[in-house]
Design a binder for these strands. Structure first.
Lengths: 336, 336
DNA sequence: CTGAAAGCGCTTACAG
DNA sequence: CTGAAAGCGCTTACAG
């Protein structure tokens, strides 16, 4: 492979000149620039990024950190849509995206991840930071690498969805349809910040009609569809008079609906089931799911944009994205 | 950050010694090793990967290349499951995964991608290489970077699914149920190798009962669920006597089923619809989808394992993974 | 506007 | 078994 030096020799200038021309420093005669660019083209020169990284301290690599906690993140459509938003922004800016999926426990992240963070490979980090168990960004902050959190851990820069407002909208919708016998399929307490905020939203809305959330039948899942099945079995068996099920994400809602049908309940005539996230399948499920859109791709894109801002020395404002109720056919008025 | 030199000074040895101890070269007294490791720990030393990359020529980064052709790859569950398989293997081996999503056209891949490939950042590449329009691996091969293809373009090392056999199984299943009025929702010719192989499989099985595939009603989609809806509208309107629809992937099949229901056809009593891929939602759809399992995570994992083999100087055998028919409730005997 | 030279932090023959 | 020294391919003050 041709090096900077080869280019310099061919163009009849110094390596310093080539380097500066290539990095678009001003103050060069048009003639010099031409000579250099010609040599670059003739030689098919491409800079060696490792060398550039070592001498400049910038790698043009950012890490996207999606910790493993509950289960395979790759089967979570929501995560993937966030990733999509980040990717769009990175590829446009010519940054490379290192996908890191550390295992996160109370002891922190795994060693591979820690090594990566300290390796000097990363110009910046975007992390899903929603697990109270530990902050994926802690080691990143320690190393003073520019970072933006998607979530609730402490971080100078973050984007997040207004989860509480979303929970509120969801409960309000169910209440507006006249339901009072409502079951909840949630996430174990203190396992997930967003889930806790959504619960807080449910509680807030419930209290406006004098309903105490903690008195409602509830059970826990792990975001997966099978856990929605299990949750529905539990709730519908023990509390057959329930007329509505609120699930903290769409996949659990889809599992719950499937199970409800298997148990002879018809959604929505006989049972209202609502979800959260508006993943792509939600609209296409039978019946189409009433849910909350939290604009996942936008979340990712804004996080990336914010990181690039920080990388440029800006101090962007952190962002809270609003949520939107998407009423579809899985919810209906309570039967008389 | 402490450097190798700091460690050497503290341990009272040379940098060469530290470097060799850390890379597990043999021939060191236990005492030396101890001294070095102690200094490493005391200083919290972590190697600078850019420096290591520059001097050793190895970056410990592999690129996972998923080209954009049809649409957002991140909403394709199949792609995500392949990624999951690759990730599992990489994280176990301590390799970092750079996710690259070039735009692929007849003119080849975009410049960012080309630059990346030539940058010296990549120890190896795994690429989805199924688009006849261009090989994502061409520039990688040109640069002589170790690579494995998931797909059909020419490559020394590849993994792929036996798509033709899968197509065959699928058609056979439909024929076994007595269907002869069969519509096909496929992919435009020569747009996707796997799709073409699956079609070849359909043709092969059809011919065993004297059915000529090209005489069957067919239409094209783009893998997406909405394109399955459109395809079903077209086919069911123009050929109301169809008793079965074969779709080349699950998402189009789900779209088709939804549309069939909207048009008053009942699946499977009144219409059989089958898909391909066995994505996670397939089992949970209403009705659960009859489909072909092509073991996507395994595909990814084997590709990664193969790449690491090549990186170690092996010459692993390329692999074809078998497919499995998964009969569920979206297919049934043709009504009398 | 351009260049000489040091330096980024490692690894790797080569000696001993 | 250990070390001195060159070299990987860039960038960046510093001079001029």
């Amino acid at each position: 492979m041709p090096t900077l030096e080869d280019v310099a020799r061919r163009a009849g200038v110094s390596t310093a000149t080539v380097s500066k021309v290539l990095s678009n420093t001003p103050y060069f005669t048009e003639e010099t620039r031409q000579k250099v660019m010609l040599a670059v083209r003739e030689l098919g020169y491409v800079p060696n990024l490792a060398a550039r990284a070592l001498s400049s301290g910038r790698t043009h690599i950012i890490a996207v950190v999606f910790p493993y906690v509950f289960e395979a993140i790759f089967s979570d459509p929501l995560t993937m849509r966030i990733l999509q938003g980040i990717e769009a922004e990175c590829s446009q800016r010519g940054y490379n995206m290192l996908l890191s999926t550390p295992r996160l426990t109370v002891d922190g992240a795994d060693d591979n991840y820690l090594q990566l963070v300290q390796s000097g490979y990363l110009d910046g980090v975007i992390a899903l930071d929603s697990y109270p168990v530990a902050s994926a960004l802690q080691p990143v902050h320690d190393k003073k690498i520019p970072a933006v959190a998607i979530g609730y851990h402490h971080s100078d820069y973050y984007v997040r969805s207004t989860d509480q407002a979303g929970g509120c909208q969801l409960m309000q919708h169910v209440l507006d349809l006249g339901h009072r016998h409502i079951g909840i399929i949630g996430i174990p307490d203190d396992m997930h910040f967003s889930a806790s905020r959504r619960m807080a939203g449910l509680r807030e809305a419930a209290s406006t009609v004098g309903l105490e959330l903690d008195t409602l039948p509830h059970t826990y899942g792990d975001w997966s569809m099978p856990s929605g099945v299990t949750g529905a079995i539990h709730l519908l068996t023990k509390y057959p008079n329930l007329t509505a099920l609120i699930c903290l994400n769409d996949r659990m809602a889809m599992g719950a609906i499937q199970q409800a049908h298997a148990m002879g309940r018809h959604v929505p005539d006989n049972l209202t089931v609502v979800g959260y996230d508006d993943i792509p399948t939600a609209a296409l499920f039978a019946p189409p799911l009433t849910t909350i859109d939290q604009r996942a791709p936008e979340l990712g894109q804004l996080a990336a944009r914010m990181l690039f801002g920080v990388l440029n020395g800006d101090h962007p404002e952190s962002i809270e994205l609003p949520t939107y109720l998407i009423p579809r056919q899985s919810s209906a008025r309570v039967p008389d």
